[in-house]
Design a protein around this nucleic acid. Structure first.
Lengths: 205, 205
DNA sequence: ACCCGTTCCTAACGTCGTTAGATTTCCTAA
DNA sequence: TTAGGAAATCTAACGACGTTAGGAACGGGT
């Protein structure tokens, strides 16, 4: 049965082409330019063809979001190779903000409420897992026992997102935002370390 | 000339009605329902009338964003009356997240990249100023000399925004987000205090 | 050689933001 | 008191959007 497999391959191929074209438009021209008709034109098809591969526009956007998280994950894994646990944490912070600066429109869509909350949580999970691993190894290295590990992770995640957002919401440039993220992380880690008495028992608060 | 002033008053009146109607739609049904035609219907006019008061939809949305910041500012001023400087800081954090939880759609639009960055910075300035005052009095109360005051403010602002965003981006509910914000602030403040030696000279980093 | 399922396109629907032009309303001034 | 004109408002329309319906074209299996 060669024909059916070839057909399936072609189908998957054009699907990938659509994703690639959509990603290109998103990254270079922003979310406002991301239009079904525009994408169809770019892959040299008519608009309805897109609906053979995606239920609707949101489903296509979700695919881009998933792609973005995979990309971010790969960059994180790279930054996670730094041996020093403290530099590893600040390095991740810097990397996160750098990603937001290098892919502003993608980053924006990755955190846009239009994509379903459950779906976003699902695709973001691997990235958060990396963060958890890093925090685990950091606290182990410093004999810090966090009072609430999940809480610390959520604070970390929120802080990174907030400071990365500064770079396109506010007046701070990406370089400064990266520095801010590093400093914020240093301060948070210092605070957590200070909360823990020298004997390594959990902090009170 | 009574007639002209009355006309002006009527004009301003319908303008306010439009803003009020738009705000109501936004808060109760979200940004997707915020339509020129919908607003016009609600104030019992035809759609083009809206354009006599606002250049375009973005200008109207900007007005809502400004309103949101004024609202937030008034709530901040209330929370800023707490005498204890530490509780004042954590109280502001809690209040910020609470606002995001009570006005999710408004909060979302207040931080949406579709509104011009300069405009957003302009309307957000008074709120940030309150934050600066609070941080100033806090550091004074604890003899903490921050190495970079503006940096600390930006970290604060970013952290609050990030954690508030968790409540509708991620899996954490608003109550938990408020708690997270308080804890994050406590940790940050602890970190900054720890950076400062006992003699009150600025920290090294 | 026919047939049928897949693939694809044109045309259309309803909605959006926005504009043009006509129509109505209402003050002013002769 | 009425003619004129500015202001206010409406209807109709334009182009673009996401999306769907219906038919044409293609291509492998009988």
């Amino acid at each position: 049965m060669p024909t059916s497999t070839r057909r399936a391959r072609e189908r998957a191929n054009t699907r990938d082409q659509i994703i690639e074209a959509a990603l290109h438009v998103l990254e270079t021209e922003g979310i406002a330019a991301l239009t079904i008709r525009r994408i169809a034109t770019d892959v040299e098809y008519s608009a309805p063809v897109v609906y053979q591969h995606f239920a609707n526009k949101d489903a296509l956007v979700l695919e881009l979001v998933a792609h973005g998280h995979r990309l971010m994950l790969s960059e994180f894994r790279q930054a996670a190779q730094e041996p020093d646990t403290d530099r590893r944490m600040t390095g991740i912070a810097s990397q996160y903000v750098r990603f937001a600066g290098e892919h502003p429109h993608l980053f924006q869509v990755m955190n846009d409420p239009v994509v379903d909350a459950d779906e976003r949580r699902r695709v973001a999970e691997p990235v958060i897992d990396v963060l958890k691993e890093l925090l685990t190894s950091w606290s182990a290295a410093h004999d810090v026992v966090l009072a609430d590990f999940d809480q610390a992770c959520e604070i970390l995640w929120g802080t990174l997102y907030g400071i990365a957002s500064l770079s396109y919401l506010g007046s701070v440039g990406n370089d400064r935002a990266r520095y801010l993220a590093e400093q914020a992380l240093r301060t948070l880690l210092l605070g957590w370390r200070t909360e823990t008495p020298a004997n390594g028992r959990p902090a009170s608060s």
